[in-house]
Design a protein around this nucleic acid. Structure first.
Length: 409
RNA sequence: GGAGGGGUGCCCGAGUGGCCAAAGGGAGCAGACUGUAAAUCUGCCGGCGAAUGCCUUCGGAGGUUCAAAUCCUUCCCCCUCCA
């Protein structure tokens, strides 16, 4: 492969827009690349969600691509908007973040981003730097550049109006705030998930209004979460965090529906659609086993965020526990105090709750009734049972929860 | 400002005096099966309890009634239309 820095603009373009859902406008990007200078690539981050997941990794990996081609990544931490409190949580109003919280979140954020791209090379700015100085007149002037009709074009606004879900004025203002960031950092390109298309396009209009060359907008598909239907998000609980331990990450990747594998290959591993099609063909023809494909995928992803060794170990462990039905190699130990017992025995229900495998006695009872509970491999179905346990006994609840009992003196 | 509609369990959503711990769907959990924590099928899915039992829940607070998610009063919040 040729040295990336000596690639022609056209070659760079091919790499940069691979897999993009929207490229606005291709010719403009090519023209900018032709200028031969490092472009400023904007990416906005919300300081309220410091837990990055694989969904975030999609644009982040694209940023890395830009970095590798010698361009300047500009990270904007939306601390100003975070301080106002993002109202887009539909029903729940999010708590307003304090300055310390935002700082802390931003630091966590940058640390996690560092797993994907070179943060040393990136410019990290807080949008309070310019918004704190803006007065009401400035804000009004900013807002004057756009119309309500155009704002309502935005798809999720239309949907929410149709569904009778409230939209606050602040949410209407949000796209401007974000758009003005582009003016402030003089962005050449802004990238994001395809749900950000509208916001990013407003950025173009606002830049034009301020007499600047509009940024090029690039968006990528939203990664679908482990449920197989909705976009990956923390609040939906269908996410795989990039800081999760290898075993957890591997397991979650194994739990995605088969249909999702091709999307994951393209968005998380940068496979081309041709490669993915080939893989699908081989699977359909019976040459490749879907489980094999999924395990390879999981291992490759875990390798990115941990290491090849950790990924291989996670895979071996997964096979051991779920395919071979053996005990995990490492089982968390849980110590029980003597006063949890009476006459050397403990109520099974209480045991389950004490080790944290059920939130209430009722839930523990259900698990017992379902036949999910065993000690040393023996299934216990009597929910009134008093059991005698010894140090080293293995309590198992369901397929995934194990505990080694330790009796403390 | 005027008129109307609505707030139900983690989410969506039915229920308009007792048969309601509250239909149905989703999520979640479990079991079976399997190729996995895929798919499919089945069960569970407020809490306490040995229990036929008890307690808490239907926006908040009061009230009517033997009995309220359902009726009344009041407060809060949301939506639609007109202006």
């Amino acid at each position: 492969m040729r040295d990336k820095l000596t690639m022609t603009p056209e070659e760079q373009l091919q790499i940069l827009i691979k897999g993009a859902t929207n490229v606005v406008v291709r010719e403009e990007l090519l023209a900018k690349l032709n200028e031969g200078r490092p472009l400023r690539i904007k990416y906005g981050a919300d300081p309220s969600a410091p837990d990055l997941h694989l969904g975030h990794s999609v644009p982040l990996r694209r940023l890395k691509q830009f970095q590798e081609l010698g361009h300047q990544v500009v990270f904007i931490i939306g601390d100003y908007t975070g301080r106002i409190g993002d109202p887009s949580g539909r029903t729940k109003t999010r708590p307003i973040l304090s300055e310390e919280e935002i700082k802390h979140n931003a630091a966590t954020y940058v640390a996690q981003v560092g797993k994907i791209l070179d943060v040393e090379q990136a410019e990290i700015v807080y949008n309070s730097q310019w918004f704190a100085e803006m007065n009401a007149a400035d804000l009004l002037s900013l807002a004057s550049h756009y119309t309500v009709a155009r704002m309502l074009e935005r798809d999720d606004f239309t949907l929410r109006i149709d569904d009778g879900i409230p939209i606050s004025i602040l949410e209407m203002l949000y796209p401007f705030i974000q758009a003005y960031d582009s003016v402030a950092v003089q962005a050449d390109v802004e990238i994001g998930g395809s749900d950000q298309l509208f916001n990013l396009l407003v950025g173009r209009d606002i830049m034009r209004a301020y007499g600047m060359t509009p940024q090029v907008v690039l968006t990528w598909p939203l990664l679908v979460g482990t449920d197989g239907h909705q976009k990956m998000s923390k609040s939906l609980g269908n996410y795989i965090g990039i800081t999760e331990p290898p075993g957890e990450m591997f397991g979650k990747l194994m739990s995605i529906p088969d249909e999702l594998m091709s999307q994951y290959h393209e968005l998380l591993l940068d496979k081309t659609s041709a490669e993915v099609a080939q893989m699908q063909q081989a699977t359909a023809a019976g040459e490749l086993h879907p489980r094999q494909v999924k395990a390879d995928l999981a291992e490759a992803v875990v390798t990115i965020y941990h290491s090849a060794g950790a990924a291989a170990a996670a895979r071996a462990e997964f096979d051991r526990v779920f395919a071979e039905q053996q005990l995990p190699s490492e089982i968390p130990e849980l110590s029980l105090a003597p006063d949890d017992f009476s006459e050397g025995k403990i109520w099974l229900v209480k045991l389950i709750v004490t080790v944290g495998f059920a939130e209430s006695n009722s839930q523990a009872r259900r698990l017992i009734r379902d036949g999910a509970v065993s000690i040393n491999g023996e299934i216990l179905t009597d929910e009134t049972a008093q059991v005698a346990v010894n140090t080293g006994d293995i309590l198992r609840v369901g397929k995934r929860r194990f505990a080694k009992i330790i009796l403390s003196e």
